[in-house]
Design a binder for these strands. Structure first.
Lengths: 141, 141
DNA sequence: GAGACATATTCCTTAAAGAGGATATAGATG
DNA sequence: CATCTATATCCTCTTTAAGGAATATGTCTC
């Protein structure tokens, strides 16, 4: 069992990279698949994937597979520390162009990804089946 | 000129080490000299000094020489980001034993260091002159 | 100016983080 | 099962961080 201080430090470790901050900022608006994050951040796939992996191992994001996309989101039940710091982060990024810009681009994207039926249309050009997955039903109502 | 996002990240870089968090927690109670920090944290001189140097280069603490002691403090005029995050940090550490313990030990120490005249009596066994330094006069009222 | 004290800096070693290219896996389609 | 798409992992390289020992600097005292 780890000391609680460790969790706090791990939160800050997650927060000290710009790509990760941008990811968290975007996820503050709701769950999103990797390919959309990639598109919004305009960064190579490896990079996004590794940062998401890092965030996940520290418990700062959660992931769920939805068909062949991975949907990342902020934890449904964050620790008080994480919650406080995510809130604080939100306040801090308000004034910074990069982050505002990301949210702006997200909002343009969002009409097409706001609900999971439409997320399934994600980055794929193919048709996807209409049946609900467990993730769709349980996690996103 | 650096992007504002950089500042934010630098704050988090400063926050992701336990020793530095403990230092910041202690300094939240007021300015303190290096030797007292050393004593409170019970860590080697090099370590404390280097962490303080790190914090200083990032603008997260300020330092002023007072005779032959260096007095460290949180910045008199922190950026909004820093202020918000220091506040958040304060909330978060409330519940963690290490940090509470540090403040407890600090408060035992503090009667002897609460005012600068007494800080000068610091870790030294020698007598120190009674005249005020510029730091004492200007910074600490 | 010599010596004592408080603190910082240098040098070295080790560990961790971050990047990218190439490859592997998992689910969906046909 | 062959193939496509989305994502993760492996390998390698470079950078940054952290720790400690030894040494340097700055201030004070005498």
């Amino acid at each position: 069992m780890r000391s609680p201080a460790v969790n706090l430090i791990e939160i800050y470790q997650c927060f000290c990279d710009e790509t990760r901050l941008r990811i968290l900022n975007i996820l503050s608006q709701g769950p999103l698949c990797v390919c959309h994050l990639q598109e919004l951040l305009d960064q190579p796939q490896v990079r996004i994937s590794k940062h998401l992996g890092y965030l996940k191992t520290k418990g700062v994001v959660e992931a769920a597979r939805h068909q062949n996309w991975m949907i990342y989101s902020l934890p449904a039940h964050p620790s008080p520390e994480l919650e406080a710091n995510l809130k604080c982060l939100q306040d801090c990024v308000q004034t910074h162009a990069v982050f505002k810009h990301d949210l702006k681009r997200l909002s343009k994207l969002r009409p097409t990804v706001g609900w999971l039926d439409e997320i399934t249309g994600c980055c794929s050009k193919r048709q996807v089946p209409q049946k609900k997955t467990a993730y769709e039903t349980k996690v996103l109502r």
